[in-house]
Amino acid sequence: MTYLHSKLVAAWLTAAVAVLPAALPAQAQDLELTITAPAGAGGGWDSAARSLQDVMMSTGAARSVQVINVPGAGGTVGLAQFVQSAEGSPNQMLVGGITMVGAIITNDAPYDLTKVTPIARLTGDPLVIVVPSSSPYKTMADLIEGIKKDVGRTIWAGGSAGGADHILAALVTQAAGEDPAKVNYVAYSGGGESLAAMLGGQVTAGVSGYGEWQGQIESGDLRALAISYPEPIEGIEAKPLKEQGYDIELVNWRGIFAGPGISDADKATLSAAVEKTVKSPEWQELIKARGWADYYASSDEFATFIATETDRVHAILSSIGLAQ
């Protein structure tokens, strides 16, 4: 139980530090951060936030980092709370990702990502398109052919409606020349439940994060037809859609944001601290262990990326009928 003990000591130390006057100019190693994970404990955003917490503290990019969970509605509850409470704050950050972009649109959320300050894009995971091993479809071209033949009987399984999985299924249907509104997409609560539907052979094809179904793909229970990442990934046999002649790319990215209207100096400090963390060998090792792909982009690049991504997601969600 030495861990508990050290945790206690650390807690007392942070407590002792907290009462010291914080009037000194903000330097990276003095940062006392709070990161909001807009999801419950255990989910993707939560583990991203907690990984960042670990590495920021172990590399000395920040002195202390606290993670708070604000779950709800694809992250939009957390976003709304963050926009209201982190205005101009130099030490609060929020984790978000493509699911949040979709949820903001489908839920008609009061705040969108233009309200917060992008600090960095962190990771990006490929999605994978699979069929059961017993399926007659051997290649992506077979699947596209099947969609053309009967779009309604091509049944897709994946995560919740309007999420990244749904978007990819719609993009593939569109690429086959069919109306994306006609995609017969059966939504499940997560990669686990849709996996059972895949293995049970109840659906034609499935979409999920590659990592979630990696075991079944490697054991041969599922056949991976393509990944949605723009380039081939080391260790993944399936080829990108782009390489197979379909102009589709979709990355399940995660990034980190600061509050609205923070000063340029604070933004620079936070960006530097995150960059230092992300470039550290500890972070590279950690994301490898988690099966995440490095997808770092700096603050400005990330801001442009979000703008184009929002337009793209909005367009496809409208064509499915989930956004006005």
């Binding site: 945790k7 206690l8 807690a11 407590a15 009462v19 993670v67 708070i68 969970n69």
Partner: peptide
């Protein structure tokens, strides 16, 4: 808050710790 690092809501008193 301290041992299990879970965020119970803080007020002026809690911030003393």
């Amino acid at each position: 808050n301290k041992v299990l690092t879970l965020g119970l809501p803080m007020g002026p008193f809690e911030r003393l710790f």
